[in-house]
């Protein structure tokens, strides 16, 4: 996505944007849902993320990957939404029955894993999602979240430990 000008440039930019949305939207929606634990907030976050992405496409310098850039916008958007007035009253507990109905079959173990991730404290949940679901490296995650790489590694380790404890029943789970 380079900084393009003129009618042909605008058309190219729009086409690039449509491809960006098509490529990332569904995974982004699921990431935002797991982060915010609310479907409508997640849909807002996705829309706001792509809106910001469209507006700043001209300034994307290609210094990071497209996904890293998009995730940075998404994580900041999710953080802003999680600080909104509504979120004050959000019940921190989350149970699998609160998840939306699936359109394909799934295993109980898979549902339990998803619910456990959603129960993680936010900072641990962020890095777990970005690394293990989005497939980003620690360098990319550090760039997206604006934190040190060592912080990313530390949070990933703690996140995995908490998940294991929850899934083994050693910690209260939902």
């Amino acid at each position: 996505m380079s900084n393009v000008k003129g009618p042909d440039g605008a058309q190219m930019r729009d086409q690039a944007f449509e491809e960006l949305v098509e490529q990332h939207q569904t995974a982004l929606l699921r990431t935002c849902f797991l982060y915010l634990r609310d479907r409508s907030l997640a849909e807002d976050a996705v829309q706001e993320t792509f809106l910001k992405a469209y507006r700043s496409m001209g300034s994307f310098r290609g210094e990071s990957s497209q996904r890293t850039w998009l995730m940075r916008i998404a994580m900041n958007t999710c953080r802003d939404l999680s600080r909104s007035g509504w979120f004050r009253f959000h019940d921190r507990r989350y149970t699998p029955d609160m998840l939306p109905e699936a359109s394909v079959p799934f295993e109980d173990e898979e549902e339990g894993l998803v619910a456990a991730v959603m129960q993680l404290p936010r900072k641990l949940r962020e890095v777990i999602l970005l690394h293990y679901y989005q497939g980003m490296s620690t360098v990319e995650i550090a760039s997206s979240l604006g934190i040190a790489q060592s912080s990313v590694s530390g949070r990933m380790k703690r996140g995995r430990e908490k998940l294991r404890a929850m899934l083994e029943g050693r910690e209260p789970h939902a």
Partner: peptide
């Protein structure tokens, strides 16, 4: 976790799909 989480998320949240008109709507707006 690398092996299990992506599949778990994509199956359990399979009903969460992107809006096919989102890009067009944003561009028009």
């Amino acid at each position: 976790l690398k092996a299990k989480l992506p599949a778990a998320v994509d199956k359990r949240l399979s009903a969460l799909e992107g809006d096919p008109w989102l890009a067009r709507r944003i561009i028009q707006a």
